[in-house]
Simulated scan of single mutants.
Amino acid sequence: MKIKNLIGLRMYYAFGTQVKGNICNYSDYDGIYLYNSNHNKIIGNVCHYNGSAGIVVNYDSHNNIILQNDCKYNNDNGIFLDGRYNTIRSNKCEANANNGIYMVSTSDIILENICQFNANYGIDSRESLNIMFMNQITYNEYSTFSNNDTHLWNSPIKIYYAYNSKQYFNFLGNKYSDHYSSDLDKDGIYDEPYSIPENNSDNYPLYSTPDTYSLQVWTLLPDSRLVNNFSDDVGMIRIESNDVHVWKAGANAIMLTEQSLWTGQVI
């Protein structure tokens, strides 16, 4: 579907809706706008040249999945988030007039996005407890901003990954175009952390772009949805019926309460 009008595609109080494969260009406002909307999937849309942002998830919207969207050349942010427990994965946020991804939200996971050539920050994270890793944050006017030290700029657990045909087990951060250090052990992680204003850092910045690392990552949302499908998983994952879930993958076990937002791996 092609959407070209004054206000773009707007959803109010939506629940369980999938918005997929739309072309939302040249709106006077946002390409796609969600207001107080929960448990929706925004997948594979094109949002270019809009008068404001490409995609907006606004006013305490939570548990939404923003996946594989193309948000370029917008007059504000590529993606704007105001809510909690949202997953923003594998989006392209490029050449926007403000930030690539801008969050006034809490407990969101920002994973495997490409944020580059934006006129302000690649990723600007406000509020608290957001998790950002495996993102490519390159060639923006400013790289990143983090308003406090509760945000996490690397994976919350160690991850098995392959890099240059060798296997490693470590935390993984993000790729920055303005970080200059060494990788003496050739594990794909810079030896020096990347400083992020204010009072934060990525302690495991990537030496290469994320597409050169081979890994399997899943995301658990508080309603027990698993955000990923693997064809070659090994091992078992079990969810308990009460409000504390035990996810088992190989020898690993992670405890999660109903308020948890976590990222792990099936091995």
Results as ranks from 00 to 15, higher is better:
45 N>M: 01
75 N>Y: 07
22 N>C: 05
200 N>E: 02
121 Y>P: 01
163 Y>V: 01
19 V>S: 02
212 T>A: 06
81 L>T: 04
251 A>T: 11
141 E>S: 05
227 V>I: 03
177 S>G: 13
78 G>V: 01
211 D>R: 11
43 I>C: 10
256 L>V: 04
134 M>V: 13
183 D>P: 01
174 N>L: 09
93 C>Q: 13
212 T>P: 03
149 D>G: 14
225 R>P: 00
254 I>S: 05
21 G>A: 04
104 V>Y: 14
132 M>P: 12
56 V>F: 05
65 I>A: 03
96 N>A: 13
233 D>G: 13
261 L>E: 09
5 N>P: 03
206 L>N: 10
128 S>N: 09
17 T>P: 06
51 G>K: 12
75 N>E: 06
245 H>F: 08
10 R>Y: 03
258 E>A: 05
24 C>M: 11
56 V>H: 15
66 I>F: 05
15 F>C: 11
137 I>S: 07
49 Y>F: 06
26 Y>M: 05
178 D>Q: 10
158 K>E: 06
184 L>G: 03
153 W>M: 11
109 I>E: 02
34 L>C: 14
92 K>W: 07
267 I>L: 10
129 L>M: 15
80 F>G: 05
92 K>V: 00
139 Y>L: 07
109 I>Y: 14
30 D>Q: 09
184 L>I: 07
262 W>T: 13
36 N>Q: 12
94 E>G: 06
167 Q>R: 10
184 L>H: 12
195 S>D: 00
104 V>M: 10
18 Q>W: 11
57 V>M: 15
60 D>Q: 08
3 I>Q: 04
21 G>E: 03
215 L>G: 08
16 G>N: 13
98 N>I: 08
196 I>P: 00
192 E>P: 00
61 S>H: 06
238 R>C: 07
13 Y>H: 10
67 L>T: 03
226 L>K: 08
64 N>W: 08
36 N>D: 09
212 T>L: 14
174 N>R: 05
221 L>D: 00
143 S>A: 14
261 L>I: 12
197 P>T: 01
185 D>I: 07
191 D>G: 04
107 S>C: 12
128 S>E: 10
254 I>K: 06
35 Y>K: 15
113 N>P: 06
9 L>W: 09
219 T>R: 11
145 F>Y: 09
